[in-house]
């Protein structure tokens, strides 16, 4: 069997579940609207009216996002290396060591300059 068939089946089940839930709720549920029902129930801040200045984020998040991308890319390279490092031999270990060492230069820099502190 094609290995993508289970993925498709899971996808169809997920999609169907979402559709059926919404339709079943629409068909069977009572509709009594009031003010409290229109509110976002325990779901954080009210979406309207929009926050002043377009709801801008603090710039601190940029550093977090960038660090995430750096380690994301590191993982992307680590995965094929881990799958076939037995075939690559010592050379593979040395080059991955160098790669991780270089990435950790960046990590150490961010860490020592206080980039990981949230205040």
């Amino acid at each position: 069997m094609n290995p993508y068939v289970p993925i498709l089946v899971i996808g169809a089940i997920g999609f169907g579940f979402a559709i059926i839930s919404v339709v079943a709720g629409y068909l069977t549920g009572p509709r009594r609207y009031n003010r409290a029902k229109a509110e976002a129930y325990e779901c954080g801040i009210e979406p309207t009216p929009p926050a002043a200045g377009g709801g801008r984020f603090p710039i601190k998040y940029f550093l977090t996002a960038m660090l995430f991308i750096i380690f994301d890319i590191e993982i992307v390279f680590l995965y094929p290396w881990a799958v076939s490092f037995d075939q690559l031999g010592l050379f593979g270990i040395v080059e991955m060591f160098l790669f991780i060492l270089t990435v950790f230069v960046a990590y150490t820099y961010v860490w020592r300059r206080g980039g990981l502190e949230w205040d």
Binding site: I59, K60, L63, L67, Y107, R113
Partner: peptide
Amino acid sequence: LLITAALGAMVLAH
């Protein structure tokens, strides 16, 4: 390149 990205983010945002 990843070092550059981290450094740039630190210079700009930290």
